[in-house]
Amino acid sequence: MQTVAVLDFETTGLSPRQGDRATEIAVVLLRGGEIVDQYQSLMNAGRRIPSDVVRLTGITNDMIASAPAASKVMREVAQFVGKHPVVAHNAGFDRRFWQAELSLLGMPADQAFACTMLVSRRVYPHAQNHRLSTLVDMLRLPKAGRAHRAMADAQMTCHLWHRLQHDIAETYGMRRVDYDLITRVQATSGAKVPALLRSLGESQAQ
């Protein structure tokens, strides 16, 4: 049974290219819809957190001051993720920080990333928006804690990932909705997704 690593970063800002750094990471290993392991840590990258980000996340500069070094955390979490494919909500953001933080350590960061935000746009096109909190409310998924903390967001992304798999399978009569299938959905334009999934469903039925 396939295991995916569901990942979420909290950071000092939006772009590592502008000097922003990670302040917290959580990774949940999900297998068959069940959480089998998890990792979470604050990290100190020597970068001050702006006041607006402190208000958003609740992560303060005092909390970061006593946190382990970012280098230590990222080495640990890279080993924890291993070769598992990665899932994140708004994965482009998390992938940029994943690559930037590991690049500073001279470590590879070549994991595949699937994006629950992109997939939800194709599966739930009529949602009010595709922010994680909106989708959790719309689909009545379990809430894991304060939004914009890494473990809470990672756990809610787990629930969303599993729900996407379930809804695709139910709608298109599929026995199996795996990581590769979902990445095909996210890479396909919204108008073409129903035809793609009908075709894949028919292939599985043969």
Rank of each mutant, 00 (worst) to 15 (best):
A100M: 15
D153L: 01
D8R: 08
L200I: 12
A150P: 03
I168C: 03
T57P: 01
R131D: 05
N44T: 13
G145L: 09
R21A: 13
D62P: 06
Q40E: 12
N61A: 03
I49D: 02
E101Q: 09
P125Q: 07
V4K: 13
F113C: 10
F80S: 00
A69N: 12
E76R: 07
S15T: 11
G106C: 05
A152C: 09
Q79T: 09
H159R: 11
I25E: 00
A191H: 12
P68V: 05
M156K: 01
V87L: 02
S103P: 06
N44K: 10
R17F: 08
N129R: 08
R95E: 14
R176W: 14
F93P: 04
A70Q: 00
A152Y: 03
F113P: 02
P85Y: 11
P16R: 04
A114N: 01
S189Q: 14
D178G: 15
A154N: 02
S203D: 15
I168D: 03
A127H: 03
W98L: 02
G106T: 06
C115E: 01
R122Q: 04
R149F: 06
E34F: 14
A70M: 04
S71N: 13
T57Y: 05
M138T: 13
G173P: 07
M156P: 00
T23C: 06
S203T: 13
K143V: 14
V53F: 05
